[in-house]
Write a protein that binds this DNA or RNA. Sequence first.
DNA 1: GTCTATATGTTGATAGAC
DNA 2: GTCTATCAACATATAGAC
Lengths: 225, 225
Amino acid sequence: MDSVSVSSPQDGARLESRRTRILDAAEKLFAEHGYDGVTLRAIAREADVDVALANYHFGRKHELFEATFMRRAELLNRWRIRALDEAIASAAPEAPSVRAIMDAYLYPLLHGPHLSDPAWRSYYALVAYVNNSTEWGGKLMSRFFNPMVDRFIDALRKALPNAPEEALFWGYHCLSGALTLAFAQTGRLDKLSGGVCSSEDLEAAYTHIVAFVTAGFEQINLSVE
Amino acid sequence: MDSVSVSSPQDGARLESRRTRILDAAEKLFAEHGYDGVTLRAIAREADVDVALANYHFGRKHELFEATFMRRAELLNRWRIRALDEAIASAAPEAPSVRAIMDAYLYPLLHGPHLSDPAWRSYYALVAYVNNSTEWGGKLMSRFFNPMVDRFIDALRKALPNAPEEALFWGYHCLSGALTLAFAQTGRLDKLSGGVCSSEDLEAAYTHIVAFVTAGFEQINLSVE
DNA sequence: GTCTATATGTTGATAGAC
DNA sequence: GTCTATCAACATATAGAC
């Protein structure tokens, strides 16, 4: 159903199907300008296809948006679940540490072509937009990511046996907010730090976020509340 | 310059100036749908004024947007700086603790009418939108908030003498992301937690975020890096 | 699958009366 | 300050030829 592959072998790898080109263009533009800031015409122009094709392949505009959001969400979920399973296996019979759980959650974001591929960077900015949007946040994030997140919360519950339920969920919310803002790469950090940090340095973001949120979660177990 | 007050005493407090009504309507709608998701006509309808008035009072659409963003930003900056100054004064001659600094940063968000006033809740959602937007984030957040944030980073620098500069800025980024997502009230947390937590419970958000980010910052001072 | 053509409505902005 | 009237541009969506 999802034709991420090239349209036909003889074209060479450079020639993607028009359907995929629309998805790529939509991803880039939605990430930059949000849902309402992008027209189907702009997407068609960016993808170098006719305007009517977006409608033919994806139906209405919001369906194209959701298809764009879903494409990489499914990949990401698979990779994260696999990383979590590995963390659980290698810590068995003990529960994996908070740090190991955070690594499983964050490492797949950077592994593979992600850092150098501008399409993945666009996608992360798109997730930041969706996550913080009152229109999409509650719906899309929940639908596509919550089942995966449930598994991570469960692992945290075992790693932090004294933690109140409520604190686990708010802790995840802190993690989610910190992560999506960092990966949105808005350039604000560059200005705030006077050049010491770069918004585009996702490797640095990873390092600092893992340390920050690990301590944030571990504190939950200690608090009396 | 900013006529937040009522237009004339004899109207009674209920009758705001049309200019203020436009600002209020813009705040609500921009928070819900983002910049491009709102038309000047929708704002005029919500404010119950003529379409042409938005242009007369604020000029172009993006100028209205910036005026909306600025209005409460200036108040918030004042309150936060005052809270920080008080924390510094009451800890003197020592530097205030990380916890005290975080309290100064977060407490003004809830103090006063903020919790019960839907307009402030809208504003927080608007900040979340701006913060994570590739179009506005780097520009507007920096312009209106960075001078205030500089002062908080400076306080953190003194509270955490072993912290590398870079880690302080990334730490703030984590704080900012966690905070704005929580105050965006997207409803995701309600679903994720199966009703244990509520996105709208800003008091709970405050409690958990303060604890989470305080631990996140304190960890920086300990890490060898 | 792809494109041309078009229906039908909306957009931001302003000129000019009051 | 406020409103009426209007413009030129652009929006989504689809019907029907190829």
